[in-house]
Design a protein around this nucleic acid. Structure first.
Length: 251
DNA sequence: AATTCTCACAACCGCCGGTAT
DNA sequence: CATACCGGCGGTTGTGAGAAT
């Protein structure tokens, strides 16, 4: 239980009346100078506490409701790119706070990824386009795209199909089998995909490679063959084989 | 039905960098 | 220049609700 003495700075959950006082005061005088604001508004709270309550809960431009799948994807992308820079990540999600995103990451995403264990190093969630390619081509860090983003942005229908399929095995297999598939693209296609040099059968995604990926899949008792990919996701397979490359850098 | 466990979230804390005194 | 103060940030914790045992 949060302790509180008479005539001291209050702590713990905010009451409706405290919220009302804070909202009312900010409506009249604006936000900022939180310590003096707390006193002037008649709140027995620290300036920090007032700021936190306003920024994370009372601000009128906050988006209520659950994090959408699109927002979750963005959080995963940005977290893998920037680490736990929550306030920076939050700036990319209008109406969401750093606290909310941090909590969401810790309680949902992190556990989800941990549960997938094998999935972590080889998944579409963590595989990034090879840095040397991006650097050579002067692609700004801001524009780096994860494989996850490739699917969600360039092939939304196929992506949602993958999401609907549910099983993590499918995700893993899909990701690794795409590796296999893309290795068969001609040089122009590879360049468009920014995936692998023409003399390589490898995606340099931070040390993982085709052989390693194949071993993992086979150790899981699955076969690492394009045929199974074709059978599992014929539409995506067809899209990749027939419709040619998709540009990754649309911005 | 009672108890324990898990999850989600609000709110706290310490630290740090920038600014005012 | 030194120090005090403030706001912002990331990590952590306390709490309540609902699920599981």
């Amino acid at each position: 239980m949060y302790k509180q003495e008479e005539n001291e700075i209050r702590k713990g959950p905010w009451t409706v009346e405290e919220d009302r006082l804070l909202i009312h005061y900010i409506a009249l005088h604006g936000e900022g100078r939180w310590n003096s604001l707390a006193k002037a508004a008649g709140l027995k709270r620290s300036g920090k506490s007032c700021r936190l309550r306003w920024v994370n809960y009372l601000r009128p431009d906050l988006k209520r409701g659950n994090i959408t799948p699109q927002e979750e994807r963005l959080i995963i992308d940005l977290q893998s790119r920037w680490g736990n820079r929550w306030s920076r990540i939050a700036r990319r999600l209008p109406g969401r706070t750093d606290n909310e995103i941090k909590n969401y990451w810790r309680t949902r995403i992190k556990k989800k990824l941990q549960d997938r264990n094998l999935f972590s190093q080889h998944s579409i969630y963590s595989n990034w386009m090879p840095n040397p390619f991006l650097q050579e081509n002067n692609v700004a860090e801001e524009d780096w795209v994860s494989q996850d983003s490739i699917f969600s942005n360039c092939m939304p229908d196929q992506y949602s199909m993958l999401q609907d399929s549910g099983a993590e095995k499918d995700y893993l297999q899909e990701s690794l089998l795409l590796t296999n598939t893309v290795a068969d693209f001609d040089e122009e296609a590879r360049t468009e995909f920014s995936i692998a040099p023409s003399n390589s059968n490898t995606i340099s995604d931070g040390g993982n490679n085709f052989e390693e990926s194949r071993d993992i899949v086979e150790n899981m008792g699955m076969s690492f063959q394009m045929e199974s990919f074709e059978a599992m996701l014929p539409e995506l397979y067809g899209f990749l084989m027939d419709d040619g490359p998709v540009s990754l850098f649309t911005g």
